[in-house]
């Protein structure tokens, strides 16, 4: 097997609040293989965005830091690269798209210019050839009448069309890895389906890997090869998409699945999740999910490590009860 495209090990990212550093991402280890989509799922505040921003080193310059761990990409540790080296890499080898299509594009630049800019910066192309490429990209993401729309401004596009523009911009330099932070959450269901289908198709034709952040398990089923479930800054379960749906093993994953509307089940059986993710300043000492957990035991006061489930090395769970192993620090 070839090396993973992205190999994150023991990542810990922190924010400074009232003079103290608190971890928003902890003990985060995850690899993304070539041409694979890994979904990162979890409730609001579980640290999904913080993880993606850490990988691309886009956390705020002040009041945020990567405290521990490594982010291996193409033989380099991104956590240790200089800002100048990161600038060369962003948008070129790793691209990112964001949740808010309405505000993520510059309102005073034409969409053509915004796409062309990536090509100009990283390829040193002339404006002319970059614009030609921008047009090709707009056609590729299926913007109707792309030639006429090249010189339009973002406010002249609908949300779904803007997200297509964002995708065109992200693909401009054929990145190896795409970080997609809830790219369809703000779109209505039909548009969401179209954008997801487009992403899947482009992933194949461009041969890239995707780290797909979402809190929608329906989207996970459509997109992911493997799924990492995050809770309070940690991965609590990591397995193939089939295993996650058929054999959810962390109590939190079970709760998430029960709360998810599905076509094959009666929506009357839905169980809303009670409570919320603890804030980063108030993390419990032991298992972070314990206060909300139906299977809670005295052992849960100790912080569990991510451990393989029974005989399956590729299905890991962070739960004393389910993984039945020695609790770690």
């Amino acid at each position: 097997m070839t090396d993973p495209v992205l190999d994150v090990r023991g990542l810990q990212s922190e924010f400074r609040i009232a003079g103290r550093w608190y971890p928003a991402v902890r003990d985060f280890t995850l690899a993304v293989e070539a041409n694979e989509t890994v979904a990162l799922v979890g409730e609001s505040g579980s640290g999904k965005s913080a993880t993606a921003l850490s990988i691309l080193r886009l956390l705020p310059a002040v009041g945020a830091r990567i405290a521990k761990g490594s982010v291996m990409f193409a033989g380099q540790d991104l956590a240790r690269l200089s800002e100048a080296e990161m600038i060369r890499l962003r948008g070129e080898a790793i691209a990112m798209i964001f949740q808010e299509p309405m505000t993520s594009l510059n309102p005073t630049m034409t969409v053509g210019a915004q796409i062309a800019e990536v090509i100009e910066i990283h390829r040193g192309s002339t404006r002319r050839s970059a614009m030609a490429e921008a047009l090709r990209l707009l056609e590729e993401v299926r913007i109707p009448a792309a030639r006429q729309r090249l010189n339009d401004y973002p406010h002249q596009f609908s949300g779904g069309m803007r997200q297509r523009v964002m995708i065109a911009m992200a693909l401009a330099c054929r990145p190896k890895l795409l970080l997609a932070d809830e790219p369809t959450t703000a779109l209505d269901v039909t548009i969401q389906g179209q954008v997801l289908a487009l992403l899947n198709e482009l992933k194949q034709s461009y041969g890239m890997s995707i780290l797909f952040i979402t809190h929608n398990l329906g989207v996970v089923a459509q997109m992911a090869d493997r799924v990492a479930v995050m809770y309070a800054g940690e991965i609590v379960e990591f397995a193939s998409v089939n295993k996650i749906f058929e054999q959810p093993s962390h109590p939190y994953t079970e709760v998430l699945l029960k709360a998810m509307p599905r076509v094959d089940r009666d929506s009357a059986g839905l169980e809303p999740i009670t409570g919320q993710v603890p804030g980063i300043t108030a993390l419990p000492v032991g298992c972070a999910f314990a206060p909300r957990c139906p299977l809670r035991q005295p052992d849960c006061d100790r912080h569990p490590a991510l451990a393989p489930l029974a005989a399956e090395a590729d299905h890991v769970v962070r739960c004393v009860v389910r993984a039945g192993q020695e609790a770690a620090v």
């Binding site: 962003r90 948008g91 990112m96 964001f98 594009l105 510059n106 910066i121």
Partner: peptide, 26 residues
């Protein structure tokens, strides 16, 4: 602090270009 500034940074725009091309006009 706007989202599109973060987008520009994610594109690999340098600090100078970020200010002159993306922020100043807005």
């Amino acid at each position: 602090g706007e989202d599109y500034i973060r987008t520009a940074r994610a594109k690999g725009v340098s600090q100078t270009r970020l200010v002159l091309r993306h922020a100043l006009r807005n």
